[in-house]
Design a protein around this nucleic acid. Structure first.
Lengths: 128, 128
DNA sequence: CCTTGACTTAGAGTTGACTCCAGGTGATAA
DNA sequence: TTATCACCTGGAGTCAACTCTAAGTCAAGG
């Protein structure tokens, strides 16, 4: 699969895909005869993983570290697991904060709703 | 309340508080005789609100727009409500993505857990 | 044969959100 | 009275994460 197709399919720009490869987030993708990237299934899985993690806000630095451990093989499993556990905790914490914000937004929206209704009533009274 | 106390209480640096004021996220805080900021209750409420929104990732641009409408008074209520509704939707969407990531992390962690247990068993077998 | 268009590279530029710096003021403590 | 300290300002610097640019290669279509 060429870069344009991957880019389209996962809504990640070609520039970003090349950037991810350069910094070691995605393995060195194989090239065809004329030097053009040809993403295989493994590469695609990596792209999906990175996309998922980035969307949730995991920092690139951390992902680079994690991916480097993956390349090093089985003796890094314990460390990798710890990284994931830590990131999971950070993510859960961020989600809790966001939930609090969501609740506040809901409250504010309801206040505005009432304010608007009240205003309309006032207008109706004036009309009377 | 002076800037240092606000900074400490809400874990926002004084630099950031002054920055927020400069860009219009926080109202022009009153000064004492020698030009030093003295945050009143209203200012504090604004700080809390901004902190909550920023932690959830609402962009500063949007917040500036919203705050500007608040200053303009009641005739902007409808627009403000629409902004909040839109941001609420974006926030909920981001949280859903994060939930998906959280689920994937949980899955990966469990896979690592099993891998480690398996490895230990192998070691135990070698020991036998 | 020539052009078009998708790809390549190294490296520079942009964006959002701070964060820091130099130089200055005013109140307080030794 | 001199030093320390918290504050002030305008403007420059930083950081993460892209995003863009210039200059070049190659395959396919007219």
């Amino acid at each position: 699969m060429k870069i344009a197709e991957v880019s389209e399919r996962y809504a990640i720009s070609s520039d970003t895909l090349r950037y991810y490869e350069r910094i070691g987030l995605i393995p060195q993708v194989n090239r065809n005869g004329s030097g053009i990237r040809d993403y295989n299934e493994n590469d695609i899985r990596r792209v999906e993983f990175i996309k998922c993690m980035r969307r949730a806000g995991l920092p690139i630095e951390t992902l680079i570290e994690y991916i480097a451990l993956v390349q090093q093989g089985d003796q890094t499993i314990e460390t990798r697991k710890e990284i994931l556990i830590e990131q999971r905790a950070l993510l859960a914490a961020r989600m809790q904060e966001m939930q609090a914000t969501l609740d506040l937004l809901d409250y504010k929206i309801s206040v505005y709703e009432n304010a608007i209704v009240k205003k309309e009533k006032d207008i109706a009274q004036i009309a009377e």
